[in-house]
Computed example of a mutant assay.
Amino acid sequence: MSQPTIDADAVMWSASEADRADRPLLVLLHGYGSHEGDLFGLAPSLPLEPVIASLRAPLVAPWPIDGWSWFPRDGEARPDRDTINASTDAVIGWLDDLTVQPTVVGLMGFSQGGAMTMQLMRRAPDRFDYGVVMAGFVCPDQEPGDAVLAERKPPIFWGRGTLDDVIPEAAIVRTTDWLTAHSTLSGRIYEGLGHGINQQAASDVRAFIQRQL
């Protein structure tokens, strides 16, 4: 089986290559069965300073889902470590190949993309400056970068809804414990919100990213 790669032609950018120099980068990572255009719709609600790049996950979600995934869905939020790390390595490889390298790199992911956000920070703790995790979870396996994050405690925003029935309770407890130990955690639990992002969450994310800049 070949290693997954990020389709550079599918990336949605908020700025042309000529306008990316000497600017921070915010990488958007969509959820299961979605696509690069999903989170990019939040771009008008996000700060103007960063260049935004919304990536398409490298795996085709199985029928009847019409979209893409970072790793197969198992229903328990416990993805295979090798599979998710193959996708994180694909994102890191895409970053390495950028002609214009950013001054700062932030990550924002929803659901599976939120898991990817934390896994990327664990795989390359020196590469990413902050993370936004919406309705996401941390993977259960230990990573070599965990010790670095536990010492450095980078800023991470974690938002989720009280009515989210997609992420299991065990994964929420695991994520709470991990984020408390490995990040400078901020975030919010949104009353009445299911597995999604509402206007208040978008506003909170904007304020969080603005503080990091």
Rank of each mutant, 00 (worst) to 15 (best):
P4L: 00
T5D: 07
A8F: 03
D9H: 15
D9L: 14
M12W: 09
M12T: 11
W13Q: 05
W13G: 04
W13Y: 15
A15T: 10
S16I: 05
E17L: 10
A18P: 07
A18N: 13
A18Q: 15
D19P: 02
D19F: 01
D19R: 12
R20Q: 12
A21G: 10
R23T: 00
P24H: 03
P24R: 05
L26K: 01
L26P: 03
L28D: 04
G33I: 11
H35N: 14
L39D: 06
F40I: 04
G41Q: 15
L42M: 15
A43T: 14
A43S: 15
L46S: 00
L48M: 07
P50D: 04
V51Y: 01
V51C: 14
I52T: 08
R56T: 11
R56V: 10
P58H: 08
P58A: 06
V60L: 11
V60H: 06
W63N: 10
W63A: 15
P64S: 07
I65P: 00
I65Y: 09
D66Y: 09
W68S: 13
P72I: 10
R78P: 00
R78D: 09
P79V: 01
P79A: 06
D80S: 03
R81M: 10
D82L: 09
T83L: 10
I84W: 11
A86T: 06
A90K: 02
A90G: 01
V91A: 00
V91K: 02
V91M: 03
G93W: 00
L95F: 03
L95I: 09
L98T: 06
T99R: 13
V100Y: 05
P102E: 01
P102T: 01
V104H: 14
M108W: 08
S111V: 00
Q112D: 11
G114Q: 05
M116F: 08
T117Y: 01
M118I: 13
Q119Y: 03
L120Y: 09
R123Y: 04
R123K: 11
A124R: 12
A124V: 05
R127C: 02
G131H: 05
G131C: 07
V132F: 04
V133Y: 00
V133R: 02
A135E: 13
F137I: 00
V138N: 04
V138W: 07
C139R: 02
P140N: 10
P140T: 03
P140S: 08
E143F: 13
P144L: 13
G145M: 13
G145V: 13
D146G: 10
V148E: 08
A150N: 10
A150F: 06
E151L: 03
E151K: 11
R152S: 11
K153I: 01
P155K: 06
F157S: 03
R160K: 12
G161H: 04
G161M: 04
D164Y: 05
E169Y: 05
E169N: 07
A170W: 11
V173E: 12
V173W: 10
T175C: 06
D177Q: 13
L179S: 09
T180C: 05
H182K: 02
S183P: 02
T184K: 07
S186K: 04
R188M: 09
I189H: 06
E191G: 09
H195R: 14
G196N: 14
I197W: 08
N198G: 08
Q199P: 04
Q199I: 12
V205Q: 02
R206G: 03
Q210H: 10
